[in-house]
Amino acid sequence: MNAQSDERGGVARVAEPDSVTGDGAGPERELGSRAPAFIKASKPLHVSWQVGVFAVGLAVVAAGVAMLVLPGPGWFVIFGGMAIWATEFVWAQLVLRWTRRKVTEAAQKALDPKVRRRNILLTAAGLVIVAVLGAVYLWRFGLSLPWNVSE
Rank of each mutant, 00 (worst) to 15 (best):
Met1Trp: 09
Asn2His: 08
Ala3Arg: 12
Asp6Phe: 10
Gly9Arg: 13
Gly10Tyr: 02
Gly10His: 00
Ala12Thr: 03
Arg13Ala: 11
Ala15Cys: 06
Asp18His: 14
Asp18Gln: 12
Thr21Phe: 12
Gly22Glu: 07
Gly22Phe: 06
Asp23Ile: 07
Gly24Asp: 05
Ala25Glu: 15
Pro27Gln: 06
Glu28Gly: 13
Gly32Asp: 02
Gly32Met: 05
Ser33Cys: 13
Ala35Thr: 03
Pro36Tyr: 09
Phe38Cys: 03
Ile39Gly: 03
Ile39Ala: 04
Lys40Met: 10
Ala41Trp: 10
Ala41Ile: 03
Lys43Asp: 10
Ser48Met: 14
Trp49Leu: 01
Trp49Pro: 00
Gln50Val: 00
Val51His: 03
Val53Gly: 00
Val56Trp: 02
Val56Tyr: 03
Gly57Met: 03
Ala59Ile: 03
Val60Asp: 03
Ala63Cys: 11
Gly64Tyr: 01
Val65Ser: 08
Gly72His: 04
Gly72Ala: 00
Pro73Phe: 10
Gly74Gln: 02
Trp75Asn: 10
Val77Met: 07
Ile78Ala: 07
Ile78Thr: 11
Phe79Arg: 07
Phe79Cys: 06
Gly81Met: 05
Met82Lys: 02
Met82Pro: 04
Ala86Cys: 02
Ala86Met: 04
Thr87Phe: 01
Trp91Phe: 12
Ala92Gly: 03
Ala92Tyr: 01
Leu94Pro: 02
Leu94Gly: 00
Val95Cys: 04
Leu96Phe: 09
Arg97Gly: 02
Arg97Lys: 12
Arg97Cys: 00
Thr99Glu: 10
Arg101Thr: 13
Val103Pro: 00
Val103Trp: 07
Val103Gly: 01
Thr104Cys: 08
Ala106Cys: 05
Ala107Ser: 13
Lys109Asp: 10
Ala110Gly: 11
Leu111Gln: 13
Leu111Ile: 01
Lys114Ala: 13
Val115Trp: 04
Arg118Ala: 08
Arg118Gly: 04
Asn119Ser: 13
Ile120Glu: 11
Ile120Trp: 09
Ala125Lys: 13
Gly126Lys: 12
Leu127Ile: 07
Leu127Pro: 00
Val128Asp: 00
Val128Arg: 04
Val132Ile: 15
Gly134Glu: 06
Tyr137Val: 05
Tyr137Glu: 01
Gly142Thr: 02
Leu145Lys: 09
Leu145His: 12
Pro146Met: 10
Ser150Gln: 15
Glu151Trp: 15
Glu151His: 13
